[in-house]
């Protein structure tokens, strides 16, 4: 029996559920509980889909990851950011501003074109893409371009229902007083996870309510 199994495995006809941890190379997200849930961190390449409201901490969640991606000397590209990016915050988070390119295309078609060019070039480590409606074929194209250039593309968009896209990782963020509430929708080589809290109190104390404040607010409300 075991000889048969071995033979099948060697001919790659047998698929084993526990050999999935090599689906992608993970880069630590900088948050211990998130790394644990995602089996190592965010994918180093490929399409990452983040469904989130604006201003609840989505960029803060990504900053340690982006900083590590950039450390190889490659570029970080922001495509159609929602407002003027602020140098102070990015610089304080360790992002090298000379390796940052901001692209503000006029149409979403141009935005996708720019994203594909950046990903294919091989000189970008990560591309952040805001609020671009993405079809299945386009997502596939971005995914292929990202694999070709060993880069990651992070799509930040509003939570929406629709067909599931071919992504390496899809997460949904919800606001929380101590950080963000993260639920894994889809993960290559893993299972969706129930919502859990990514605690930002250590990294961003100014942008979190402490537990005492939390209880005070509760008491006031009651």
């Amino acid at each position: 029996m075991s000889a048969l199994l071995e033979q099948l495995t060697r001919r790659q006809l047998l698929w084993q559920g526990n050999s999935q941890h090599t689906a992608y190379q993970a880069v630590s997200s900088g948050y211990a509980e998130l790394d644990q849930q995602l089996a190592g961190g965010f994918p180093a390449s490929g399409l990452i889909d983040i469904q989130t409201g604006q201003g609840i901490g989505e960029l803060r969640l990504l900053l340690p990851y982006l900083q590590q991606q950039q450390s190889s000397g490659r570029l970080l590209v922001l495509i159609s950011p929602p407002a003027e990016p602020c140098a102070d915050m990015l610089c304080a988070a360790g992002i090298v501003l000379s390796q940052l390119v901001i692209v503000t295309p006029k149409t979403s078609k141009d935005a996708l074109w720019a994203a594909e060019q950046c990903l294919q070039s091989g000189c970008c480590a990560s591309v952040l893409l805001w609020q671009v409606p993405l079809k299945l074929a386009q997502a596939r194209r971005l995914q292929l371009a990202a694999e070709q250039g060993a880069a990651s593309v992070i799509l930040i968009r509003r939570p929406m229902d629709g067909l599931s896209l071919p992504v390496n990782l899809s997460v949904k963020l919800q606001p929380h007083r101590q950080g963000v509430l993260l639920s894994v929708q889809k993960r290559k080589g893993g299972w969706p996870a129930a919502p859990f809290l990514v605690d930002m109190q250590n990294r961003w104390p100014g942008l979190c309510f402490t537990t005492e404040q939390h209880w005070q607010a509760r008491r006031k409300a009651s």
Binding site: V101, V103, D110, W113, A114, C118, Q120, S121, G122, G149
Partner: peptide, 18 residues
């Protein structure tokens, strides 16, 4: 690094279209 495009070439490409 895969791809033979340098960052400066990429920027020129983006500038030419956008």
């Amino acid at each position: 690094v895969p791809g033979a495009v340098s960052p400066l070439q990429l920027v020129s490409l983006l500038q030419a279209r956008l």
